[in-house]
Write a protein that binds this DNA or RNA. Structure first.
Length: 281
DNA sequence: CGGCAAACCTGCGAGC
DNA sequence: TGCTCGCAGGTTTGCC
């Protein structure tokens, strides 16, 4: 599910219920997700105050007053449900792997059927040195276009594949890469190292617009993603190309030039949706 | 090192 | 109705 807009939507939902709150209790209903849940995790988390709730790329960071940080990733199918009234209101669901109760009385449940998610704790000051983050690119909501251009210049793989690499830019996933490339009129097959400064700037503008609009709309619910109140995102209704193989893209529809122009292809094992007529190499 | 397939899991829809 | 197959928002590993 979660690319940057979905994770940011979850972060904003958690903010009023977790930031500044004391974690009274945390329950792990299994000892691993994608990564193991260490034995000491509960002791390090329980009783601590949340000093801030931040996001980097698709990762959520719950920073604690004891200088430890919970690194939280939603995998493919992770969702967070908040019950402000606490345990009396909480309805356990299958695949609720982690349940947090705050001193203020809220219950927060992490549900993840496919268990591709991650939830582990590391010292806050080691975050930037830590494995995935140490060589991750800038966050897709706050990056330098000139640096993006330099990174693209070093890669000859297709632009679609390169933008999915979190070391290039952090937070983009399959949906938003397809959508941004469409809006920028760039073919997903174009070699990254053939991107001009001008085209990179154009792409960056469309990435910015696409992510902002998606966040405004609560992210995209294909199947699993939910806001923390259980409601669905809305941005899936605004896709130009993702999941629309065989349909007509908005540009071609406007020009009355073609129908059924949207094609679905595979790149590095992932589906790509695009309009071959209007997305240029 | 770069690039790609496969693996990690469960659930769901399509087709038979 | 029920079975099998393929596919899904991501990341990591291992093999050319």
């Amino acid at each position: 599910m979660p690319e940057l807009p979905e994770v940011e939507t979850i972060r904003r939902g958690l903010q009023p219920h977790l930031d500044g709150q004391i974690i009274k209790n945390i329950t792990f209903n299994r000892d691993n997700l994608r990564t193991p849940i260490t034995l000491g995790a509960r002791q390090l988390i329980q009783g601590q105050t949340v000093s801030s709730l931040t996001r980097f790329g698709k990762y959520l960071f719950v920073n604690l007053s004891n200088a430890q940080t919970i690194v939280w990733h939603m995998g493919m199918s992770g969702t967070v449900r908040i019950y402000p009234q606490g345990p009396s209101e909480y309805e356990p669901k299958k695949h609720d792997h982690i349940v947090i109760e705050t001193e203020a009385g809220a219950t927060i449940a992490y549900n993840d059927p496919r268990r591709f998610g991650m939830f582990y704790i590391i010292p806050t000051d080691e975050l930037s040195l830590h494995k995935p983050f140490s060589d991750m690119g800038d966050d897709a909501l706050d990056y330098d276009t000139a640096i993006l251009y330099e990174k693209l210049r070093l890669r000859k793989a297709p632009i679609k594949t390169v933008l999915l690499d979190q070391a290039v830019i952090a937070g983009l996933g399959n949906i938003y890469v397809c959508e941004a490339l469409f809006k920028a009129g760039i073919s997903p097959l174009k070699a990254a190292n053939t991107m001009s400064r001008q085209k990179t700037k154009r792409l960056a503008e469309e990435i910015d617009k696409t992510l902002a609009l998606a966040i405004e709309n609560g992210g995209s619910t294909l199947k699993d993603h939910r806001l923390t109140d259980g409601s669905m995102g809305y941005f899936q209704h605004m896709f130009d190309v993702y999941g629309r193989a065989g349909e007509t893209c908005p540009r071609c529809a406007n020009d009355k030039k073609s129908i059924n122009c949207i094609e679905q292809i595979k790149q590095a094992g992932r589906s790509t949706f695009y309009c071959p007529r209007t997305q240029k190499i």
